[in-house]
Design a protein around this nucleic acid. Structure first.
Lengths: 214, 214
DNA sequence: GTTTGAATCGAACGATCGCTCTAGAGGCAG
DNA sequence: CTGCCTCTAGAGCGATCGTTCGATTCAAAC
């Protein structure tokens, strides 16, 4: 969102970075640009020089701040994707009714997805290219999120709202709708994000009832 | 491993063998191996040497059969993904009732997804790395499939089953559930594919009813 | 027997990859 | 001024990338 504007400010003449002055340090600009590339081209589809050249800086800069290409990827994960499970749990803190909890869960998930769209895309684009430690973050986050959904779905089944016994499949279906939105929603449509979210939530909450017997 | 033992004896004037015609020709083995790599590592995450070394053959072989790395990718698309819209239309040929049509559409889509899981994954993994002509196939297929779903959803709205006016969002939600299955379903679970499909269809058909007013 | 052509290999090309190294520029403490 | 530290640039390293080329094998065609 702000990457393009900050980028133009410090291109050609290579001025020294002034952290805190204009709010975007060299480090932040590198992160934003890397985010743009990683989220659209994937890890192996993005080269260090792609990022450096887009900003008109040297590749040494990236290694100075992040140590390696994978370190840059992990740095983005650290402040965004890794916080997703805690954010979802936070949205459930004050809600007791099972159905209201689930709706709050989906709503919070959609809100985070809109805020961190590019970052979350990084999870789902090309997952077998990082070293063991790097992949572990992706898998851990996805596993934690899935566990949250299954736990809430169990409460819904206890309440008689969900009838199927295959809660894992149901959770995948719900997550499919939510995560697919990362692909098709670009914010340039005529509908505000809230209306889009309402449509998605309506679809999911109806889908919970599962296959009609008979 | 099997490439060295398979010597093909095909007639000189004929073009390369069609897939599935005789045993496993060198060409077919190359296609299958490329499919394994492309569907898990993406286009830029797969190197020509990855494929060649996995089979113990020379990289020249790939260029002999497919001309280029992108030609190999497109060859896979040609016999699989590109046929998806026609297959979906074919499933609708004899059905008239709108709801039955939609159910047949989703069911056929799931069947094709199970048969061509790796091929369809290639669509959704890394989409900005091919040249203009290569990307066009991906976009065309996705656009055609979306058009089919929207057309059927319009019939459902005319029949009073679908109430929302945002059919495009609804179509994306349905496609999200179906396509997300490409990620999580690996066929190694305890449930047969038919049961999984039934769960997914049940979720989608209930989701069609959309947000409950009030 | 000769010719043809598809199938295959191994070497090598230029480009690009992730990454390292050295050095210079500028701020700041002594 | 001197030394230290952070930030940055640029050259260059070895490896790998997609691709090309020449040569060889082998079976069918003439």
């Amino acid at each position: 969102m702000t990457a393009a504007s900050t980028r133009n400010r410090r291109t050609a003449a290579a001025p020294p970075a002034r952290p805190g002055e204009d709010g975007a340090s060299s480090r932040d600009v590198l992160l934003q640009t890397a985010l743009d590339f990683f989220s659209t081209r994937g890890f192996s589809g993005t080269s260090i020089r792609d990022i450096a050249n887009a900003l008109g800086v040297s590749v040494s800069n990236i290694y100075h701040y992040f140590g390696s290409k994978e370190g840059l990827w992990l740095e983005i994960m650290e402040y965004s994707v890794k916080t997703l499970p805690a954010r979802l749990e936070g949205a459930l803190a004050d809600v007791t009714d099972p159905l209201a909890r689930f709706e709050a869960l989906v709503k919070a998930h959609l809100t985070v997805s809109t805020s961190y769209q590019r970052e979350l895309r990084m999870i789902f684009i090309e997952q077998d290219r990082l070293t063991v430690g790097g992949d572990k973050i992706n898998h851990d986050v996805q596993r934690q999120v899935l566990a949250i959904y299954i736990r809430e779905l169990e409460a819904l089944r206890a309440a008689g709202i969900v009838r199927t016994e295959h809660l894992k499949i149901l959770a995948f279906n719900v997550l499919g709708v939510i995560n697919w939105q990362l692909r098709w929603y670009h914010g340039d449509g005529p509908l505000p994000a809230d209306d889009v979210h309402r449509e998605i939530i309506g679809f999911i909450l109806n889908g919970l009832h599962g296959p009609t017997p008979g």
